[in-house]
């Protein structure tokens, strides 16, 4: 079946099988390997992208469901060399160890801050509950999201 999807600002038209998952369309057809497959069971959130501006797990969406819609991947966030505040904060706060969960974390944090620009620490933790980090790096991830929101990131305690 033919689909037309706008991905990171560019429109693509491709023939896909109905069973093709969006994440495999992005990676294998479009070559956008920045979006990774983590668990492949819709648990870990590593494959998170924005579909029409809201976060989704792209291993749990069919490519045909995205027909006529707009996808933003981790590769579509930065403007050339200029990182988004979330990307910048992840770098500054060292919000990663192995980095595999990072694309999904950044996409989910981007969605979270778009709808709740000044979240509390609790709201960040709940808002990121669908993204798993197996290096136990949540502390710095939460710090990075708070910093990206323009709030002073505390050392893990309550927000001032």
């Amino acid at each position: 079946m033919n689909i037309t999807v706008k991905v990171d600002g560019t429109s693509y038209t491709d023939e896909v099988e109905p069973r093709t998952l969006l994440v495999y369309y992005l990676r294998e057809t479009l070559g956008k390997t920045g979006t990774v497959v983590g668990c492949d069971t819709s648990n870990c959130g590593a494959c998170t992208v924005l579909l029409d501006g809201r976060s989704v797990k792209s291993c749990n969406v069919l490519a045909v469901q995205a027909d006529g819609h707009e996808v933003t991947t981790i590769e579509g966030l930065a403007d050339g060399e200029t990182l988004t505040p979330v990307q910048e904060a992840f770098r500054e706060c060292h919000a990663l160890q192995c980095g595999f969960c990072t694309p999904g974390m950044i996409m989910q944090a981007t969605d979270l801050l778009a709808t709740n620009p000044s979240p509390t620490e609790d709201e960040v933790r709940v808002g990121m509950e669908g993204n798993l980090c197996r290096c136990t790096g949540y502390h710095n991830i939460v710090k990075a999201v708070l910093q990206a929101s323009g709030q002073p990131a505390s050392s893990g305690g309550e927000q001032a």
């Binding site: 998170t48 809201r54 989704v56 797990k57 749990n60 989910q108 669908g130």
Partner: peptide, 9 residues
């Protein structure tokens, strides 16, 4: 219900 990504779909 589940998490934000699931609730969006």
């Amino acid at each position: 219900v589940a998490d934000a990504q699931i609730r969006h779909r």
